[in-house]
Design a protein around this nucleic acid. Structure first.
Lengths: 348, 348
DNA sequence: ATGAAAGCGCTAACAA
DNA sequence: TTGTTAGCGCTTTCAT
């Protein structure tokens, strides 16, 4: 049915070996006329190499596994688009899985391993108890499989393509200070410091963001005001964040530091907080300025429009897959850091 | 490196042929003790078949291509999750691509074909001019490649796993009538009737939804009120819908039929409309009841909470992949229809 | 009831 | 400069 190398070789009147070499770029080993004939034949027949055969021989699947946590569902599409860009016109294809629990995450990973993916891009999850699949991933890495982590750092040894959340904290504080705010609170959730209490290391996103905020506040001579709120985590991460944001207004208003601005862990918390302000008749941004993180589509829709840090999702996908491809080629690579962008709108 | 069938056969002291047969379920051809030995050996060695080799021999890639339009970005994660469920524990893996233009869509399709996927799940796009990749897909189908279409019907011959949008129209009208509304408008976009003017056939989602609305109105003795608004389509589909919803309030209020309720094409339009009402001081739902379609996370967040039809995204993915697998097995299958669910909240 | 052998399409080492 | 050859790991037909 399909056009094989043999067919191309036949048409060009050379051996399959020759055809193969020519088509794989070893043109300088052959007479120009030979190369010409082979290339023409391949084009005429619309030859496409059979990946299964190539895989078998090369001991590579030309597949990269992408594991994505539902917690980031809203940027899944952007992210996979970026992955595609990074893969470009190489022979690789992404096999993509989205997971909503540690169990399904482990299952997805298992599938990728069975498929013998050449590398893995991992957006890991964390459950209500602060548990992760870190050990599983560590084992995978130990086996030598290239792995790039995105949207968090739960696998300490992994190369990562993450947003610079310390910088995020700094950008927001600087922006709010410039607008005259002195009492700037940081709203996050009750697991923000899981990085300290678990083996995850100092790179849990909430912790990193908090540290960026804290350091900037201190070095600006301001007092950090940390407000945390528990996540219910039934009904999904996003919904829980919204609710925690809503519920936190009370703590914010009751706080002795009388915050005039709040930097939220993510957009969902910010939406919740804005809604609470609305319900309580608290003017945003006049009485309380609010900044989020993420810049989902809703940020431009909600009123007042949300001032927030744009999370470069597509770029994350692109950079992560570029890194991974280089790792697969046995290059040594460093983690990359992506910069957020402050989108100043109405809420701050 | 990896455990091969040969290794299993060696350990069980049988030939590879025997080991293979046993592990593929042809147990009744062999002595019970033989089967036992093979199975034990496979388990002990944690044997996993090499897909590349199997593919090569079976002339199947065990890959299914998933093409997804950015226009539905918000449900991508849910959808792929469903695809995974449908694939279950079969040997198939999804290679997933998200596209944001006809060009990238075609490129993704091309990649899938090069990879020789065994089947395709397609969420097709449509551009500003109403163009689609229908011809491309038709050609693919003509070649015999199993294809299931979701989230729209741009490929007339394709098996589809779509939501019953006629039913959606009916459900909403019935609900609003029961609440006493007589003048119920349908807000959609200016391409709603592309189905009539192009070769796409009568299944463009906006058209189907309109027809369900129209038929129910007529059979209830009410006069359909159609309000369309152009989409800018720069800045993405979602954003454009929001803007069109916002801008349409003017037309709605100026309409001689004086609508007391509006059924919107999607949640984005509904958000826009709600926001416009808010800005103009029009009470929702008292003065104007609003119903959307989609039930994205925002629907529960916006105030008033949006009454909307839930679009079963995960189920769509699950059913679509189930259908596709059956098609790959040469079964004859029918398109399936999924039912939306009315989520009654505050806006209507 | 089991095994030997050919071959899927491609690659790479070696021969000519 | 080009061709011959031996697999990669699995499936399947045909002997035994």
């Amino acid at each position: 049915m399909a056009v094989t190398l043999k067919a191309v070789a036949g048409r060009a009147e050379v051996s399959v070996a020759t055809a193969n070499q020519v088509l794989n770029g070893f043109v300088d080993r052959f007479a120009e006329s030979t190369c010409e004939r082979v290339q023409v034949a391949a084009r005429d027949l619309e030859y496409v190499p059979n990946m299964a055969a190539r895989s078998l021989q090369k001991q590579r699947s030309y597949l990269i596994g992408v594991l994505f946590s539902d917690a980031n569902a809203s940027l899944f599409s952007e992210f996979t688009h970026g992955v595609m860009q990074g893969i470009g016109s190489t022979d690789y294809s992404p096999i993509v899985f989205s997971h909503d629990s540690l169990r399904t995450e482990a299952k997805c990973l298992e599938r990728c391993l069975h498929r013998k993916v050449d590398g893995l891009i991992v957006g890991a999850g964390i459950d209500e108890a602060g548990q992760t699949n870190t050990d599983f991933y560590s084992k995978v890495m130990a086996s030598g499989l290239p792995l790039v982590e995105v949207f968090g750092r739960f696998v300490p040894e992994a190369v990562s393509g993450n947003v610079d959340l310390k910088q995020a904290g700094k950008m927001v504080v600087d922006h709010l200070r410039a607008a005259g705010h002195q009492s700037i609170a940081h709203l996050t959730h009750d697991r923000y410091d899981v990085a300290r209490h678990s083996g995850i290391g100092p790179h849990y996103d909430a912790w990193e963001m908090f540290r960026g905020y804290e350091q900037t506040m201190l070095s600006s001579g301001l007092t950090p005001v940390l407000i945390t709120h528990p996540l219910r985590l039934t009904g999904g991460f996003s919904q829980s964040c919204y609710e925690s944001g809503y519920a936190s207004l009370r703590s914010i208003m009751a706080h002795p530091a009388k915050p005039s601005a709040v930097f939220c862990y993510n957009d969902d918390q910010a939406y919740g907080l804005i809604q609470a302000c609305h319900d309580e008749g608290i003017a945003v941004p006049d009485r309380l300025a609010i900044v989020g993180y993420g810049d989902e589509k809703l940020a431009r829709i909600i009123r007042p429009r949300l001032t927030t840090l744009r999370r470069p999702s597509r770029e994350t996908g692109r950079r992560a897959s570029e890194l991974l491809l280089r790792m697969i080629e046995k290059e040594t690579v460093e983690s990359v850091t992506l910069e957020p962008e402050l989108m100043v709108r109405e809420s701050a």
